[in-house]
Design a protein around this nucleic acid. Structure first.
Length: 818
RNA sequence: GCCUGGGUGGCGAAAUUGGUAGACGCGCCGGAUUCAAAAUCCGGUUCCUUCACGGGAGUGUCGGUUCGAGUCCGACCCCAGGUACCA
């Protein structure tokens, strides 16, 4: 009756049993070392796609493996519920974002349960719950008190037809995706978090984070972009003002032939007031997006103003240009230009006939011809007056000192990292808890009045946020002066705010004062964090920043939130990442209905190693199903004929000894792949090979039968993190009681691995010419004698002189002949 | 543009510390079983050459280091992710 593998029956039985026993509900008092295993929570977009299946299956494999290893594991799940797609759905279909989000969560939760993930659902929350974002508003106000929050102008993409701010994603080829209007750069007052205050710690801490991939640390280092340089003041002629620039190349200062400012720079605005051409150029600069990739690839353009600055050392006038490639957001919004020694400046100078002078010469044979390209290497100074002949380091110091002496410069450490703009002109997000009063200006909402609840009964009458016209939300009393005509801030927070601390909230999802309580210091930091490589910079940097903010608020007792990080490659569809591609080919539902969860999970794990991107294809599902069926029938067929007697390891046949060796080799490999390498496709292969070996072995004695039982039990335990339902169903078939969820990982038997003889490859001049079987303890002379005696090897050695012999133990022999 | 990855049979991939390239699986070919089919089982499957034994080539391209390179070094090509308002 059990010969037929029916995944739907055994999966619902296993899932009911887990739910009834509450096996995945974690408590602080359970035995074992704590292990907090977390996969990045999803945006509830509607239904799961195969990228989600991959991410949460990987998380669940880590969860279940660590349970087998005796850890007290907590694996929670929640919903990153605020965001643009809910608003787009509301605009398109008229469904309020809250309702749309709630429905999506219900559907996706059902899909996750159907996949059999060992999740502690008692900790679930969505970031759109007021009980959650309450504490985000609270932290913002704490940071406001500390001066870690400020307001300044920043540039946004403005759609002049829809009269709304667009996300970079909503700008297609420079036009609004709905209106088709050319977008404009527009300045707006925005709230900022001082992440740059933590730049140095965010950078240096990376060196200690051994559980993170080098590639991610490297990306974060480059993003933070620390550089040592000099801040130089160029006095603006005719104005009581200086233009401050930052440079990492003060050694080239004597070669500066102009300075350039951003279109939004005050000096550019002043120049525009006097010149119609400059004003027109600035207008043209506005016809651009805020995306860095666009700015970096566009045609470089500029216009001269009538302003001059004085060179800080020579006093010579240098013209001020407005250039489209200078970013107001980065540094001071101005740069000094040295066309002889910077390629971008060189191209700009060529285009606009600005003089190009040489002040650095190579000290070796590096080519240097300024009529062809800038010379950008470090070198020796010339045409630099008193600094001539100095090398880079000496010139850096001497020029920095000279500037410092005139009070026109100072050495500084600069960061590429910019402060985090958190204001969004959108409805579906966490309200920023401030009030605007005509008397008092910007007034923070008192913490006793939190949370500022986002109204959910809204109608979209266009593309703009309904908050901007909702009197019941807008009108309020100033908490400072009591004026009754104050207005509530209608901007909401960047949704990266919610995902920057949710992992801490999972430790104590009902904490009520303040955002987290003591339980966080049992569970945090997250021991293993799993998520897509697309989050390598922004999300992970913001989360690290927030954790430090919480630490400095006295809320958490460690410095970094994620001890070990697993960055998943993308699951692609039509060559694009799944969350970006259209269509429902990525929907796992029909696969679950047809094959069951274990097959989907196994196929996904088998398809590729976790860190690799791959194109999703259903081709592997039949193979995974075939493998699970095979395991099923091997176990049942074997059990039917008896599980065998005592296993007498000392008196086994060679074949039985070989099967035992394979059993323990599989166990050791799986342990290493699960625990250290985090590569699960090879675990599936190894169990497949073990099953193939069991299939080929014919037991002759009761002891042989016991060897097969041991092999099958090992196969079932080892595959259980990946295919947990079939493993639960086969466990009693193989004579074991209880659930595998709490079962300890099998003891290793190293003695089973010993071999009496090994096969060596014999190469002649690096080419394989034969193979020989030698005793495991054979010495080098014996190995070489056997190798040279092999027929084909002997033929290749015939008449040649042996020049060198290399013996690699247990691997190969290479005989070099001349 | 810049930063970070990746490129291996018809396909997904394996090769963990520089040591047999292609494990395992998909697909395909042949066979067994079957009235037939599905399912299952057995065998084969990088390419070229050879009746066969064998030989030659081969891990994006070009070059280098080494007894030996998918793995290390240099240059380049292509693809993906990120690029601060997609999440």
């Amino acid at each position: 009756m059990n010969a037929f593998y029916d995944p739907h029956r055994i999966e619902s039985e296993a899932q009911s049993a887990w739910a009834q026993a509450k096996c995945f509900e974690a408590t602080e008092s359970a035995p074992g070392e704590k292990y907090y295993c977390l996969a990045m929570f999803p945006y509830p977009s509607g239904r799961l796609h195969m990228g989600h299946v991959r991410c949460y299956t990987l998380g669940d494999v880590i969860n279940r493996y660590h349970r087998l290893k005796g850890y007290n594991v907590m694996q929670p799940m929640g919903w990153d519920a605020f965001g643009l797609p809910a608003e787009n759905a509301a605009i398109k279909n008229g469904i309020p974002p809250a309702q749309w989000t709630k429905d999506n969560i219900a559907y996706m939760r059902g899909q996750m349960q159907r996949l059999g993930f060992g999740i502690d659902w008692s900790r679930e929350f969505a970031t759109c719950d007021p009980e959650y974002y309450h504490w985000e508003q609270w932290l913002f106000l704490k940071l406001y008190e500390k001066g870690l929050v400020y307001r300044k102008n920043a540039v946004v993409n403005w759609d002049p037809v829809d009269q709304t701010v667009l996300a970079n994603e909503q700008v297609v080829d420079g036009r609004g995706w709905r209106s088709g209007a050319v977008v404009e750069r527009r300045e707006m007052a925005q709230w900022f978090l001082k992440i740059t205050h933590y730049a140095e710690e965010l950078l240096t801490e990376l060196d200690k984070m051994e559980g993170w991939p080098e590639s991610v640390k490297s990306m974060q280092r480059n993003w933070i972009g620390q550089s040592q340089g000099v801040e130089i003041d160029f006095p603006v002629q005719g104005r009581d003002d200086v233009l401050t620039v930052f440079t990492t190349r003060p050694d080239t200062l004597m070669g500066a032939t102009y300075v350039a400012v951003a279109a939004e720079h005050p000096l550019a605005k002043a120049a525009a007031a006097d010149s119609a051409e400059v004003a027109a150029f600035i207008e043209r600069c506005k016809q651009n997006t805020t995306a860095e990739a666009d700015l970096a690839t566009m045609e470089k353009a500029g216009i001269a103003t009538t302003f001059n600055v004085s060179h800080p050392l020579t006093g010579k006038p240098l013209p001020v240009w407005v250039a489209n490639f200078v970013l107001m957001e980065y540094g001071s919004g101005a740069v000094m230009s040295v066309p002889g020694h910077d390629q971008r400046d060189w191209e700009f100078a060529r285009k606009y006939d600005i003089p190009i002078g040489q002040v650095i010469e190579p000290v070796d044979d590096t080519p240097c011809d300024l009529s062809v390209a800038a010379f950008t290497e470090h070198g020796r100074l010339l045409n630099s007056g008193e600094f001539d002949g100095l090398d880079f380091d000496a010139a850096f110091a001497a020029i920095a000192d000279a500037l410092s002496a005139k009070n026109l410069g100072r050495r500084v450490t600069n960061y590429r990292l910019r402060d985090w703009g958190v204001s969004r002109q959108r409805y579906w997000g966490c309200p920023i808890p401030v009030i605007h009063c005509e008397t008092c200006g910007v007034v923070p909402v008192p913490t006793r009045d939190l949370p500022v609840v986002l109204p959910t009964d809204v109608q979209f009458e266009g593309v703009r946020s309904p908050l901007t016209t909702m009197d019941s939300f807008l009108n309020c009393t100033c908490p400072k002066c009591g004026r009754t005509d104050a207005r509530r801030e209608t901007d909401t927070f960047d949704t990266f705010m919610e995902s920057s601390w949710y992992y801490a909230r999972f430790a104590c999802p009902d904490a009520n004062a303040p955002m987290v309580d003591d339980r966080v210091n049992y569970w945090a930091p997250v021991d293993h964090y799993v998520g897509g490589i697309e989050h390598a910079i922004l999300h992970l940097l913001y989360a690290r920043f927030f954790y430090k903010l919480m630490r400095d608020e006295g809320l958490v007792g460690s410095d970094e939130p994620f001890t070990r990080l697993l960055m998943l490659g993308m699951v692609l569809q039509d060559g694009k990442k799944m969350s970006k591609s259209a269509g429902d080919a990525g929907d796992p539902q029909k696969l679950l209905d047809k094959y069951g969860a274990d097959t989907v999970r196994t196929a996904m794990m088998f398809a590729a190693p976790p860190d690799q991107s791959f194109e999703w294809s259903e081709a592997g599902l039949e193979g995974a199903l075939r493998f699970l069926r095979k395991l099923w029938s091997l176990a049942h067929d074997h059990a039917e004929d008896g599980l065998g007697g005592e296993l007498d390891a000392a008196s086994l046949s060679d074949a039985a000894r070989d099967l035992r060796r394979r059993t323990y080799a599989t166990l050791a490999k799986a342990d290493d792949d699960y625990g250290r390498r985090i590569q699960f496709n090879t675990v599936v292969s190894a169990v497949m090979e073990l099953c193939n070996a069991v299939g080929k072995f014919t037991p002759a004695t009761e002891s042989d039968r016991a060897v097969v039982t041991e092999a099958l039990r090992t196969a079932v335990v080892v595959i259980s993190p990946i295919a947990p339902h079939i493993a639960e169903a086969l466990w009693p078939v193989l004579g074991k009681q209880g659930s595998l969820v709490g079962f300890p990982w099998p003891q290793m038997d190293d003695s089973a691995l010993t071999q009496t003889s090994v096969e060596l490859v014999v190469q002649v001049n690096g080419k394989v010419r034969g193979k020989v079987q030698v005793a495991a303890d054979a010495d080098q002379d014996r190995i070489l004698t056997l190798a040279k005696a092999e027929d084909n090897v002997a033929r290749h050695l015939d008449g040649k002189t042996v020049r060198k012999e290399i013996v690699v133990p247990n691997k190969l022999v290479n005989i070099v002949v001349g």
